[in-house]
Amino acid sequence: MLLQHLQFELSEGDDGVATLDAMASTRDALHLAAIRTEAQEVLAWAARQFPHSQGPVEEGGVWDRELLEQPEAGGWTTLTLTLSATAAFVDAFRAEFRSAEDAGG
Protein backbone atom coordinates (compact mmCIF):
# COMPACT_ATOMS: atom_id res chain seq x y z
CA MET A 1 0.00 0.00 0.00
CA LEU A 2 1.27 3.43 -0.92
CA LEU A 3 1.02 5.99 1.87
CA GLN A 4 0.19 9.41 0.44
CA HIS A 5 0.12 11.49 3.63
CA LEU A 6 2.09 9.74 6.35
CA GLN A 7 5.80 9.10 6.19
CA PHE A 8 7.03 6.87 9.00
CA GLU A 9 10.44 7.09 10.61
CA LEU A 10 11.84 4.06 12.40
CA SER A 11 13.87 4.13 15.58
CA GLU A 12 15.01 1.03 17.41
CA GLY A 13 15.69 0.91 21.12
CA ASP A 14 18.25 -1.15 22.97
CA ASP A 15 15.35 -2.96 24.65
CA GLY A 16 14.19 -4.56 21.37
CA VAL A 17 11.23 -2.21 20.99
CA ALA A 18 10.99 -0.38 17.67
CA THR A 19 9.06 2.85 17.19
CA LEU A 20 7.46 3.97 13.95
CA ASP A 21 6.51 7.66 14.04
CA ALA A 22 4.55 9.65 11.48
CA MET A 23 3.26 13.21 11.57
CA ALA A 24 1.26 15.30 9.12
CA SER A 25 -0.04 18.86 9.41
CA THR A 26 -2.63 20.71 7.37
CA ARG A 27 -5.02 23.65 7.40
CA ASP A 28 -7.34 22.02 4.86
CA ALA A 29 -10.34 20.03 6.14
CA LEU A 30 -10.36 17.64 3.17
CA HIS A 31 -6.66 16.95 3.53
CA LEU A 32 -7.14 16.35 7.27
CA ALA A 33 -9.89 13.83 6.49
CA ALA A 34 -7.53 12.03 4.09
CA ILE A 35 -4.77 11.96 6.72
CA ARG A 36 -7.19 10.55 9.30
CA THR A 37 -8.35 7.90 6.84
CA GLU A 38 -4.79 6.85 6.06
CA ALA A 39 -3.95 6.56 9.77
CA GLN A 40 -7.05 4.42 10.33
CA GLU A 41 -6.07 2.19 7.37
CA VAL A 42 -2.66 1.59 8.95
CA LEU A 43 -4.29 0.73 12.28
CA ALA A 44 -6.85 -1.56 10.64
CA TRP A 45 -4.03 -3.39 8.83
CA ALA A 46 -2.17 -3.85 12.13
CA ALA A 47 -5.29 -5.24 13.80
CA ARG A 48 -5.87 -7.67 10.91
CA GLN A 49 -2.26 -8.84 10.59
CA PHE A 50 -1.58 -9.09 14.32
CA PRO A 51 -4.98 -9.79 15.90
CA HIS A 52 -5.31 -9.90 19.66
CA SER A 53 -1.71 -8.77 20.09
CA GLN A 54 -2.05 -5.03 20.62
CA GLY A 55 -0.55 -3.89 23.89
CA PRO A 56 2.68 -2.61 25.38
CA VAL A 57 5.56 -4.47 23.77
CA GLU A 58 7.41 -4.40 27.09
CA GLU A 59 4.54 -6.46 28.53
CA GLY A 60 4.37 -9.05 25.73
CA GLY A 61 2.33 -7.19 23.08
CA VAL A 62 3.41 -7.26 19.45
CA TRP A 63 2.34 -3.69 18.72
CA ASP A 64 0.75 -0.70 20.36
CA ARG A 65 -0.35 2.68 19.12
CA GLU A 66 -0.83 6.30 20.02
CA LEU A 67 -2.88 8.51 17.71
CA LEU A 68 -2.99 12.20 18.55
CA GLU A 69 -4.67 15.11 16.82
CA GLN A 70 -3.62 18.56 17.95
CA PRO A 71 -4.98 21.94 16.86
CA GLU A 72 -2.15 24.40 16.25
CA ALA A 73 -1.82 28.14 15.77
CA GLY A 74 -2.90 29.61 12.45
CA GLY A 75 -5.62 27.06 11.83
CA TRP A 76 -3.25 24.12 11.45
CA THR A 77 -4.05 20.64 12.73
CA THR A 78 -1.30 18.10 13.35
CA LEU A 79 -1.96 14.37 13.44
CA THR A 80 0.70 12.12 14.95
CA LEU A 81 0.67 8.32 14.80
CA THR A 82 3.21 6.36 16.83
CA LEU A 83 3.49 2.59 16.67
CA SER A 84 5.62 0.69 19.17
CA ALA A 85 6.37 -2.76 17.87
CA THR A 86 8.43 -5.91 17.70
CA ALA A 87 10.87 -6.61 14.87
CA ALA A 88 8.36 -9.01 13.26
CA PHE A 89 5.75 -6.24 13.14
CA VAL A 90 8.24 -3.80 11.64
CA ASP A 91 9.23 -6.32 8.96
CA ALA A 92 5.58 -6.88 8.01
CA PHE A 93 4.92 -3.12 8.09
CA ARG A 94 7.84 -2.45 5.73
CA ALA A 95 6.61 -5.16 3.36
CA GLU A 96 3.09 -3.69 3.30
CA PHE A 97 3.61 0.07 3.28
CA ARG A 98 5.74 2.49 1.38
CA SER A 99 5.50 6.25 1.25
CA ALA A 100 4.97 8.42 -1.81
CA GLU A 101 8.50 9.72 -1.22
CA ASP A 102 9.88 6.15 -1.38
CA ALA A 103 7.97 5.64 -4.63
CA GLY A 104 9.57 8.75 -6.14
CA GLY A 105 6.48 10.95 -5.86
Rank of each mutant, 00 (worst) to 15 (best):
V17Y: 05
A44Q: 10
A92P: 13
F8D: 09
F93N: 07
E66C: 13
W63L: 07
A39N: 05
T26K: 02
L2D: 08
L83I: 15
L43Y: 04
L3H: 08
L6G: 11
W76G: 04
T26V: 11
G75W: 04
L2A: 07
M23C: 12
A39P: 10
H31C: 14
S99P: 13
V17K: 11
L30E: 01
G60Q: 07
F50Q: 12
A33Q: 03
G75F: 03
L10G: 10
T80A: 13
W63H: 08
T80I: 14
T82P: 05
G13H: 06
Q40L: 13
A44C: 03
E12N: 13
R98L: 11
H5C: 13
R27H: 10
A87L: 11
D15Q: 03
A95H: 07
P56Y: 07
A87E: 14
G61A: 09
E59S: 12
T80R: 14
Q40C: 04
A103C: 06
A44V: 12
Q54I: 07
M23P: 00
G104I: 06
A18K: 07
G55E: 05
D102S: 13
T77A: 00
D28M: 00
L43K: 08
A46Y: 01
F8W: 07
A88V: 14
S99H: 12
E38G: 01
P56F: 00
S11A: 05
L2P: 03
T78I: 02
W63Q: 08
P51C: 13
V57D: 11
S84Y: 10
E12V: 15
A47W: 06
G105W: 09
R94D: 14
S53V: 04
L67Q: 07
A44H: 13
A29R: 12
P56T: 03
T86G: 02
R94Q: 13
A34W: 01
D102F: 01
H52P: 01
I35W: 00
H52A: 12
T82G: 08
F97E: 03
D21E: 12
G13R: 09
V42S: 06
G105Q: 02
G60Y: 08
A88D: 15
A18G: 07
G16A: 12
H31R: 15
D28F: 00
T26H: 05
A92R: 09
L10S: 14
G55W: 09
R36W: 00
L3S: 10
L43E: 04
E59Y: 07
F50W: 12
P51A: 10
A22T: 07
G55V: 08
G60L: 08
Q7I: 11
D102C: 03
A85L: 04
D64L: 06
Q54T: 06
A34V: 01
L2T: 15
D15F: 01
A87C: 02
L32Y: 02
A24R: 09
D64Y: 15
G13L: 08
S11Y: 00
R98A: 13
H52V: 04
S84K: 13
L10Q: 15
W45N: 04
